[in-house]
Write a protein that binds this DNA or RNA. Sequence first.
DNA 1: ACATTAATTGTGT
DNA 2: ACACAATTAATGT
Length: 213
Amino acid sequence: METKEALIQESLGYILEESLIKEIIHSSQLKIYDVDHTIIQIGDEMRFMPIVLSGSIKVLRENAAGDDLLLYYIEGGDTCAMTLQCCVKNATSEIKAITMEPSSLLMIPVEMMETWMNKYASWRTYILQSYHMRLTELMETVDAIAFMKLDERLLKYLTDQAKLLGSLEIHHTHQQIAEDLNSSRVVISRLLKQMEIKGLITLQRNKIVLSSI
DNA sequence: ACATTAATTGTGT
DNA sequence: ACACAATTAATGT
């Protein structure tokens, strides 16, 4: 197991200046989570901004009825500046975040955010870039929901997932996929079957294998 | 190794 | 959407 310092240096060392790295090491908390662990639940009080050091997490929105919708993913070295933004206002989370693989996260206390924003140019750039990336991904998701049919969205979901986890195999049940896409299990099963007939994928229990990306 | 049960997936209405 | 059948994995004996 790598030390906290090494992990931080490895993922952020190139982007952030030395003195800031020292401060981060000093005031952050390192958290290690297993796969499918809920890091942030809706209504949680936001006292930390997470930076993903390794692994990846998905961010979902939930409606009043309790249906989920996948918004975007956050990979290693990335952060969710939006988490911070949407939570400064009312201090509770509007979204939930779940690990997609075993992941290590760095928890930055929110009170450090403003201090560092004023103090470090590299931090400002980092946060703004992250913010921009999240917004771009969010727009892509909005486009997908507004303009793509479910079968196209499903294919995009599978390829995104494969790219992110670096494997053609996707270990999800049809039910879990349906939840991410805010659809129903039967519909997903049928669409997947069609894709299998077209030769795009092969189906096994708890596992979908992409023929190609 | 076998039987039982639970979870997942497939299909017709 | 619902109901049910079929298949597969997990567990106990």
